[in-house]
């Protein structure tokens, strides 16, 4: 049971961060299908930072540096979307898809190149190991004999990100202007808001949050990661969470916990005798989060609350 809660919190943190990223991007008017790719690159940045971390660095510094590098990597990668979508008015869905394919390829090539060079051709896998460094993120709370809860610093980061996001979006001038750019960019422009700048900001925030989210996905429960697999559709689950959460921070958090629970089940169902007795193949549990999200989408998409101008390139002077 403790394990289930722990995994639920991990996946929920990951989904909240990434879905909030998607939310900022879409409120500014840019559809960010490339979140999956941003996650992969953020994860790569974080994983490599941990791998190259010299010994004896204090845990606090490890956490700060790793998160910072993941955020920077995600930010840099998200620029591919903003340049294409805002400056060149490219098809945002296509660019996002290209970013997802690109990210997995980049990660595989980079990690394999590092592994191949380091091992003189013996190790050609795409696996990064960060066994000791990842301990820095974890604080173990003893709950009696042999059972403990692994508290993760990522939980704190997520809660801070959630509160800050809600405040920025609803209580600041910046947030309201961002909102306007996704609903009616022409009106925002007429009111003196620089739409391109706002959209750049929206995508950049999604890059930072997506990058950290990717790090959470690979580093909170694992001590190594095979970049061959990318992040297995987590970015798209986050988009489903965002839609289910109606593009609102608090509802996104609620949705993420529900999705996180189902995702966690596939990891820990073996710990429940009742579920083991049912003898359901593990693939069914793997499938569950995707089926749930399809059903949820089917029941919530009818009256879509999506930002009205998302996906449409802004043309000055167009009505």
């Amino acid at each position: 049971m403790i394990l289930l809660i722990q995994y639920t919190l991990i996946y929920a943190s990951c989904l909240i961060l990434v879905a909030l990223g998607g939310m900022f991007s879409e409120h500014s008017g840019v559809i960010n299908i490339g979140l999956e790719g941003i996650m992969v690159i953020g994860a790569l940045g974080g994983a490599l930072t941990m791998m190259y971390m010299p010994e004896g660095v204090s845990p606090f510094l490890i956490v700060v540096l790793t998160v910072l590098m993941a955020a920077l990597a995600g930010l840099a990668f998200s620029m591919l979307l903003s340049v294409a979508a805002i400056n060149f008015k490219a098809d945002q869905t296509l660019v996002g898809t290209a970013m997802n394919i690109l990210a997995t390829a980049v990660a595989a090539v980079v990690v394999k190149a590092i592994n191949t060079t380091a091992s003189h051709g013996d190790n050609v896998s795409a696996i990064v190991r960060y066994i000791e460094e990842h301990e820095a993120f974890i604080v173990r709370w003893n709950l009696g004999e042999k059972s403990f809860f692994e508290f993760n610093w990522f939980f704190v980061i997520t809660i801070v990100a959630l509160i800050v996001s809600a405040v920025i979006l609803y209580k600041t001038k910046f947030g309201l202007r961002l909102y306007a750019c996704g609903e009616h960019p022409q009106a925002a422009d007429a009111a003196g808001v620089n739409v391109a700048k706002m959209r750049y900001s929206g995508v950049m925030i999604s890059g930072v949050l997506g990058g950290i989210g990717g790090l959470v996905y690979i580093a909170s429960a694992n001590s190594s990661w095979d970049f061959k697999y990318g992040v297995a559709g987590a970015g798209f689950l986050a988009l489903a969470v965002m839609i289910f959460g109606e593009w609102k921070p608090w509802k996104i958090a609620g949705a993420a916990i529900i999705f996180g629970l189902f995702r966690a089940l596939s990891n820990v169902y073996t710990a429940f005798p009742l579920l083991m007795e049912l003898n359901i193949p593990s693939n069914v549990y793997n499938m569950l989060p995707y089926i749930i999200s399809l059903l949820v989408l089917a029941f919530t998409s009818k009256s879509s609350r999506a930002p009205k101008a998302e996906g449409i390139p802004f043309e000055k002077g167009q009505r």
């Binding site: 060149f88 290209a98 090539v109 190149a113």
Partner: peptide
């Protein structure tokens, strides 16, 4: 030569091609 490079290189080339093909507008 897979002892030096990985076969994912062509995947990377393909991915870059699709990214740039979104720029037909340019």
């Amino acid at each position: 030569d897979l002892n030096v490079y990985s076969s994912d290189i062509s995947g990377l080339i393909v991915a870059i091609i699709i990214y740039f093909s979104a720029f037909t507008m340019i």
